[in-house]
Design a protein around this nucleic acid. Structure first.
Ligand SMILES: [Mn+2]
Ligand SMILES: [Mn+2]
Ligand SMILES: [Mn+2]
Ligand SMILES: [Mn+2]
Lengths: 219, 219
DNA sequence: ACAAACGATTAGTCAAGGCTAAAAATTAAT
DNA sequence: ATTAATTTTTAGCCTTGACTAATCGTTTGT
């Protein structure tokens, strides 16, 4: 079953919007996430339904089928492996990666993918700290909590960022809060939820709650 | 001027068929080289002419314009850099490379290309020994002659292969005649043009003239 | 309960890029 | 010089995947 690049793009976004294909998504949400018009999304939903990639009841939203889920995960796997290549080997910064990986992810060649994975040393997470699905489609999730949920005085490792905007990533860079950095929550301000953080045992940083809310850590 | 993948594929093939864009090519030849129907090639030629990528007189063939030549060389450059990546880093064998590189070559990102080139160490030749155009489009050709034209007793380095068929490449592998290998022409049989060759100062090989005709060497 | 608002689908259009079949132009053979 | 063969172009059709405008269904506010 050969999917086109457009179909793969839709599947990937549907998967992400619907929390791993578990919940139903609306036409307008899909269109917005794809930066397209609702009519186009509606069209594509109908076609994906015909190909049995999702279950669809008119006017009531779409949900990925098992097959659709499998295909979406495959695309995500390709995307993340290319992300690792771009970040680790080609020294792309976080904010430059996504667009290029969105193109490379559609190169269809089983050999390419397995060789790339081997070349990269079988990475387990992408540059944002998200787990990479393995060859069978299994996604190994690690226990992680929002930085804000960490008890005062406890240390943890930054494992993931929820926002990918250049501004946000640039800020993280500035304070040294990269993926894998060790942090310790020194204090929480009750009033506005802002926090005081020790980064890599070196630097103390004050951070607003809206920033902290986008960081996930592993205690 | 954004070119589609289809347009880039045609330009690349036109360039190669027409000896660097210098001579005019026919619709049928182009169609055959693209594995498409003459009607489709005719269609595309018309569109490329409208975009000033080639000069075209109905019924009399097409020739690349300076602009078209420049674009074609750019595609070839991307193609060859990916080839080097696939061969050197992902350990693809010669016969597995071409199809995948034909897909990767269309990924459009100036940053990607320059970083990839840097990562690969600014290679000068592709895995077949063909020179890689530099960033300005210049192609540095090296003096090279057919193996058959080498005088008896003279040594030379294999720099390029003219055939890319799996069977041929497999044979070269077997006798150790990779790109860069040092060879010495020991003897020529007048009758059938076959030759006796010393490969890498180690092995003596007998080779038919049809094989030898596909090897280019640098004395 | 019904109208208005909102969300989703359909109808119709377009461009790219393939195809087949038919027509036209060129080239080769008698 | 005609005719025949070959090459090239055109005409018409198809699919994908976008769009706008119009319509249809559902949900909400009064
Ligand atoms: Mn994509
Ligand atoms: Mn290509
Ligand atoms: Mn067309
Ligand atoms: Mn459609």
């Amino acid at each position: 079953m050969e999917l086109t690049a457009a179909e793969e793009n839709y599947l990937k976004v549907i998967y992400k919007l619907s929390d791993g294909g578990k919940t139903s998504i609306s036409t307008n949400d899909l269109a917005a996430a794809m930066s397209m018009k609702p009519a186009s999304a509606s069209d594509m939903i109908k076609r994906l339904a015909e190909k049995k990639l999702l279950d669809y009841r008119k006017y009531y939203g779409a949900e990925l089928s098992e097959l659709g889920k499998k295909q979406a995960i495959e695309v995500i796997r390709r995307n993340k492996l290319w992300m690792v290549f771009l970040a680790d080997r080609l020294k792309f910064s976080w904010d430059e990666i996504d667009q290029v990986a969105d193109e490379l992810e559609h190169t269809r060649s089983g050999l390419l993918l397995s060789r790339l994975e081997e070349f990269l040393g079988y990475p387990k997470v992408d540059p944002h700290g998200e787990p990479i699905p393995d060859v069978s489609g299994a996604i190994q999730t690690r226990p992680r909590i929002p930085l804000l949920a960490l008890p005062i005085g406890q240390s943890a490792q930054i494992v993931s960022v929820k926002d990918s905007s250049p501004a946000f990533l640039k800020y993280l860079d500035k304070i040294g809060a990269y993926i894998g950095a060790q942090v310790k929550l020194l204090d929480k301000v009750e009033f506005d939820g802002s926090i005081e953080l020790l980064v890599d045992q070196k630097r103390t940083v004050f951070m607003s709650s809206s920033i902290a809310a986008n960081l996930l850590v592993m205690p």
